[in-house]
């Protein structure tokens, strides 16, 4: 699981390019449903579990990478 792969998945779900510094509030498409889909897609694709408690703490691409402990 590499940083680029995670960023690609997020871009794919949002159907637009994002990078490491993109935050949720600057992207209109990143609504609560898409938020959930991003997490589900990452979980399923990389066989990891992201706790539902972390969901509301995620506000950016960086937050996701941090939770997955990817730097």
């Amino acid at each position: 699981m590499k940083k680029e792969e995670i960023i690609n998945v997020i871009s794919e779900v949002l159907n637009r390019k994002v990078d490491e510094n993109t935050s949720k509030e600057e992207i209109q498409e990143w609504d609560s449903l898409k938020h959930l889909q991003i997490i589900m897609e990452i979980e399923e694709r990389f066989n990891v579990a992201i706790s539902i408690n972390d969901l509301s703490k995620i506000n950016s691409v960086k937050d996701i990478l941090n939770i997955l402990k990817i730097s």
């Binding site: 609560s32 449903l33 959930l36 889909q37 997490i39 589900m40 897609e41 979980e43 399923e44 694709r45 539902i52 969901l55």
Partner: peptide, 16 residues
Amino acid sequence: YSDKGWYFGGMRFSMN
């Protein structure tokens, strides 16, 4: 199926 999707988004099916 995905429980996460269902309880938080009304989506029954997993992304897969």
